[in-house]
Structures are given as structure tokens and as C-alpha cells.
Amino acid sequence: MRLTRFYIILVTIPALLAGISIFFGRYPLTIENVFNVLFGLVLNHNVDPTHLGIVVHIRLPRIILGAMVGASLSVSGAAFQGMFRNPLVSSGMLGVSSGAGFGAALALILFDHFFWVYPFSFGFGLIAVLLCFIIGRFTSANQSITLVLGGVIVGSVFSALISFLKYVADPMDELPAIVFWLMGSLSRADYTHILVAGIPMIAGTIGLIAVKWKLNVLAMGDREAQSLGLNVKAYRLFVIICATLATAGAVCVSGVIGWIGLVVPHMGRMLTGNDNRRLIPACISIGACFLIIVDDISRLLTSSEMPLGILTSILGGPFFIYLLKKTKGRQW
């Protein structure tokens, strides 16, 4: 029964937040306007096409995509922390974010059409993780540590490459586009994004849910996990594939939104404890809520949208400290 209540809470809170968020935005719509659109859709009334467009084609996809991106980054971060037994790693640990950032910058320079940013960032995100794996193969030592190290190396190489691209980019239009993309935004959200980027995000997330208890066992260390009967290498590969798909899917549509994949898992740990059977679902829910809220603030705060990467850190930091004080790091 307690478990049922737990899942009801996990679904209800993001749903409520999404419902409230639909009323927020830059375009002045009254509460009544929004209700008119919503009831109009259900009852098939005629509604103001501008209002309809704003609610259904701008606000709603943005909220849905925000929830998916937040959930994907958080759940991947939680899975990586558990599997690498390191509370300081995040969803971008194996270089996905830097690789994706490089891919996006490259596409912005090479092509005029923004479309190419998505396949390039997604593809280079995967290539970065693959490179980590190849580096990990060079030694026979503890593979977890080599992978983490590989992530640091690949990440810094791609960061340097991003800097190089910024250096050579046209400062009038390409450079601002790259900088803005790297700070993360949901402003381009539409239903195509949700459908296409949603496939890797949802597939990865479902995969991680499926092995949530096995993550507990993996947290015991490779040697113990294997002696307990787990095929450690196979599970590690599976977790990395799932987390990489989810993160790359999220990053390619939203840009680099830092901090979520590191801190949301810790919020989850403070609230539910470290048992991944609860932590993984909790991270999905908290991550979704967190990014919905941050994106609401981003839309409301200034007339030109504040990039999400800035806000997640500015808001996440104090909130994290508050949680730390409130729970005193209990169960953590």
C-alpha cells in the first residue's frame, strides 16, 4: 500500500506542475483564455486560433519535452552514480554532453539549416561514450575507474574542440547560436522533437527502470556483484547504453543543461534513500518537476529567455543546500 501511494505521488506532482505551467508564459493569456482553449479542445468548440496555437503548440510541447529531458538526465545520473559507486558523477560523465555539444557546434558551423544539430549532437554524444569504452579497453585494471577516467579525458578533449569551433565561428551569427545552444534551452520544443528524441529518452529510461534493483547489487562492487550471481560486464554495458541513449536524446533537443544529472539524484537520495528500486522512479519524477519549474521561471523571469543551464545551477544550488539542511543528509 505504501508503495502504491509512493507511485501515486510520483505521478501526481509532475502532472499537477505541468497543469499549472500551461498558464504561464510570455504571451499575455488570462486564466480564462487558457481554460477556453482546454475546454474548447475537449468539447470541440471554436477557440481563438492564436490562443490555441500558444497553448497547444508552444506551451504544451515545451512542458512535455521539459519533463522528458529532466527525467532522462536525472535517471541517467542516478544510474551512473550507483553503478560507478561514485556520488560525484553525473549523466554527462562518459562525455555524452561534451560530445553532443561538439556535434551541435559543428553542425551550426557547417550547415545553414538548424535541423542538422539534432543528428550531429546525438551522434557525437554516442561517439564520445564509445571512445571512453575504447580507452577502457587499454588496461585490464578495474574497468569502472578506467571508464570514469576515460570520461574525463574524452570530455576535456571535446570541450577543447568546442572552444576551437567557437574560435573559428562567425562571431555575428554562428558564435551566439553555439553559445546559446551550449547553455540549454527548450524554446524550440515541438511535437516532432517529442516523438523523435522521445524514442531514445523513453527507451533508455525504461531500460534503467528494468534493472533498477540490479543497480543495488552493482553498487556492492564488481567482485561482490559477480559472486552474487550477476553478469557484471553485461549489466554495466546495458546501463551505459540506456543512460547514454537517454542523455543523448535529451541533450540533442535541449542543449547542455548541466547540474540536473548530478543534483537531482541526490535530492532523490535524501527523500527516498539509496535503494534504487525507489530512487530510480523518484528521480524520473523529481527530474521532470525540476525542469518544468526551471523552464517556467526561464519563461517568466526576463523578456528574452534566460538559458536553462544558468538557471538550473542558480536555483538548484540553494535548493540543494536547503534540502541538505532540512534532511541533514539522512539516509544519504
Partner: peptide, 18 residues
């Protein structure tokens, strides 16, 4: 046994059923 995350004793024992 290196402990990285706080699990309850029961959760740790359950891992014996892997």
C-alpha cells in the same frame, strides 16, 4: 566490504537472492 551507499541491512541481505 567497501560501503558506498547507505542501504538498509535488509536490502543488502536481499542481494543474496540475485
Amino acid at each position: 566490504h567497501a560501503k558506498h551507499f547507505s542501504f538498509s541491512v535488509r536490502d543488502v541481505l536481499l542481494m543474496g537472492r540475485s
